[in-house]
Amino acid sequence: MSVREIRLFGDPVLRSACRAVTDLESVRGLVEDLLETTKLPGRAGVAANQIGVDLRVFSYNVHGEVGYLINPEIIDLQGDPQLTEEGCLSLPGLWHKTPRYPIATARGQQLDGSIVEVSGTGLMAQALQHECDHLDGKVYIDRLLPEERKLAFRALREQSWFMAN
């Protein structure tokens, strides 16, 4: 197990939809690395493509609840989308009001092949939506309302890490 480096916005792996996992045993090491990478402070979740792997797997760590989903899909969203402050490890230093549903449920597999559902409100709902977006090749700024999106891209261009990318 190891903590893996986070890919930054501009890396093509973040903009491509990830492939489904067909051999669960082959991703055991990936799951372990995702869990280790997510355990660092300030991390609610990490998607596989954020560490350079184009497979549909993510880990989460929200209020002490740590886990992962393989081949996840959002199966239920409830309530009206609310503007919530959101950031991303792949866009460090940027935070923007992002429309997210207040209640979300995702379904996915575990390494033993079992199917599990993870539901949550608040940060958990946000993390489930955020990580599934990553696996679809989207980042949170893709969800911003037009005026907020303009602000986000202006702020993005001012980031020293972005110009170096």
Rank of each mutant, 00 (worst) to 15 (best):
F58W: 12
R100T: 01
F9K: 11
G87N: 00
D23W: 00
R28S: 14
K150I: 12
E32S: 12
D54I: 12
I75N: 07
S26N: 08
M124G: 04
H63S: 14
F9D: 06
R154V: 13
E147D: 04
L30R: 03
I103R: 12
H130G: 09
L14F: 07
L55M: 10
G87V: 01
N61T: 08
L128C: 02
D33F: 05
Q50G: 05
V66F: 03
Q126K: 09
V66C: 09
E158K: 14
G52W: 05
E147P: 00
A127G: 01
S160M: 04
V3F: 06
H96S: 07
S119Q: 05
G64F: 02
I51T: 12
M163R: 15
N49F: 14
V31D: 03
I103D: 00
D136R: 13
A125E: 02
V53D: 02
G93M: 07
L144G: 04
P72K: 11
R7S: 08
L123M: 15
L123G: 09
E32L: 11
G45T: 03
R4A: 13
R19E: 15
V27I: 13
P99D: 07
S160T: 13
I6F: 12
P99V: 08
L128I: 05
Q109N: 14
E25C: 10
P92I: 15
V66W: 04
K150V: 15
L8F: 11
T37M: 11
L55I: 06
E148M: 08
L123N: 07
G122M: 06
R157M: 05
V46H: 09
Q82K: 10
K138E: 10
R107M: 07
T105C: 05
F58D: 12
A47M: 10
R157V: 13
I74Y: 00
V62N: 04
I115W: 14
T37Q: 01
P72N: 07
Q78K: 12
V139R: 06
Y101E: 04
I70V: 15
D11L: 06
G45H: 03
R4P: 10
